[in-house]
């Protein structure tokens, strides 16, 4: 059995497919591409795959990490897999990982978000946020205000995330709901020198 880690993007309308629905989607594409996926043990064996921190419905992800276990074979070719992926899902790279390396959710300690606002004055509301109000959103760093967006790094993305941001903004009357926002997760992984990097460095792959 071979443990592989890959980075993929989730774009377009496919962002409306829930995170939990992605494993079968990816595994079916891998199977179409001709790869044999290892199965979990137990009464109801499943394809062995595990994703990184969940991305909420409607949010696009540019560099999302995931892991899949294949029956022993050559490391798959990204181009070969992508031929069988539904529109919106694309693999960027795939590498073998040492079996002793900790799980993705342990490795992914930071996420880089960009949030666009489709409504006026939402940004003004945010600018007027007090320190306490920002703190309520979780550990946010490197906050940048753009023309019609904010960009920031969030630590501990598995626990604090966009859902909290949307509910706070709704509470403040800044937005009506998810429909007023367009959200992108630019990257999720490890924080290196102020930048969020996918967990594909030697340290993350070999332990």
């Amino acid at each position: 059995m071979m443990r592989l880690r890959f980075i993929y993007e989730k774009r377009g309308l496919l962002s409306f497919v829930p995170h939990v629905e992605l494993p079968p989607l990816i595994c079916r594409a891998m199977r179409r591409a001709g790869y044999s996926i290892a199965r979990t043990m137990g009464f109801s064996p499943r394809d062995k795959i595990s994703l990184g921190p969940a991305l909420p419905i409607g949010v696009i992800g540019l560099a999302e990490p995931a892991e899949i276990w294949l029956e022993k074979q050559d490391v798959p070719q990204v181009e070969q897999i992508n031929r069988y992926m539904p529109e919106g899902l694309r693999f960027h790279c795939i590498k073998e990982v040492d079996a002793r390396v900790p799980s993705l959710n342990k490795l992914c300690t930071a996420a880089h978000y960009r949030v666009y606002f489709n409504v006026e004055n939402a940004l003004d509301k945010l600018r007027s946020f007090s320190v306490e109000e920002w703190d309520a959103l979780g550990k946010i760093e490197h906050l940048v205000f753009g023309n019609d967006y904010i960009e920031y790094v969030q630590l501990d993305p598995a626990r604090a995330g966009l859902t909290k941001l949307v509910s706070v903004l709704k509470e403040k009357g800044a937005v009506k709901g998810w429909e007023d926002l367009f959200m992108v997760r630019l990257a999720v992984g490890v924080l290196k020198g102020g930048e969020v990097c996918p967990p594909m460095g030697p340290a993350e792959l070999d332990g």
Binding site: G12, L13, V17, I57, G58, I60, E87, Y116, E179, F182
Partner: peptide, 22 residues
């Protein structure tokens, strides 16, 4: 996709993946 006109309505309903085809 920011300007996809379906995005707005899909953001307002339960199980939006029912409506995206693909």
């Amino acid at each position: 996709e920011r300007f996809d006109r379906r995005k707005h309505i899909l953001s307002k309903v339960k199980k939006p993946c029912r409506y995206i085809g693909g």
